[in-house]
Amino acid sequence: MTEKPKALGAELLIPLLALAFTIYFLTTTSAMEWEAKANGVIVGWVLIALVGVQLVRSAIDLARGRATLSFGPLIEPADAMRKRIGMLVVTIALVAGVPWAGVGLGLFVALAAGFAVMGVRPLRRILVVSFCVALACSLLFTVALDSGLPHGPVENLLLRAIR
């Protein structure tokens, strides 16, 4: 049985991210007092060395045909990837929209969009579940726990009804 080649494109993302951040840390702290950078320098250089070993190991695997530069494990299966990207877009939209829409309305719209992206049908079920979850969160976060989340039309209405 032949072993499946390693997908190095995906495997190297974390090491490269770590390497980029370490270089950023070391360059931006180079002029600081030793107390401020000592720990970062020690950990950072060890990390650079380890990433170096990982890169060499990957290059050898690539040269021997035991690996490819594919991103396979991250993007497969394609159907799930569509859902993931959809969920990320919805989440980023929620983060951007929550300061003015408030947690209740923002969460309701985002949940409805999220359920649709994930393939929940029919529309009525999407709306009912989104409404129930958003209302429960609104009550819990803003009324019961008064967590300081941005208020929107739903929270203002709820608070007015309670007071």
Partner: peptide
């Protein structure tokens, strides 16, 4: 998971606000 995924992601991201507001 069609229900769990949106609820987990969206509700926990909103809850991330609570610690420091």
């Amino acid at each position: 998971t069609t229900y769990l995924v949106p609820i987990i992601i969206l509700v926990t991201v909103v809850a991330a606000f609570s610690e420091r507001q």
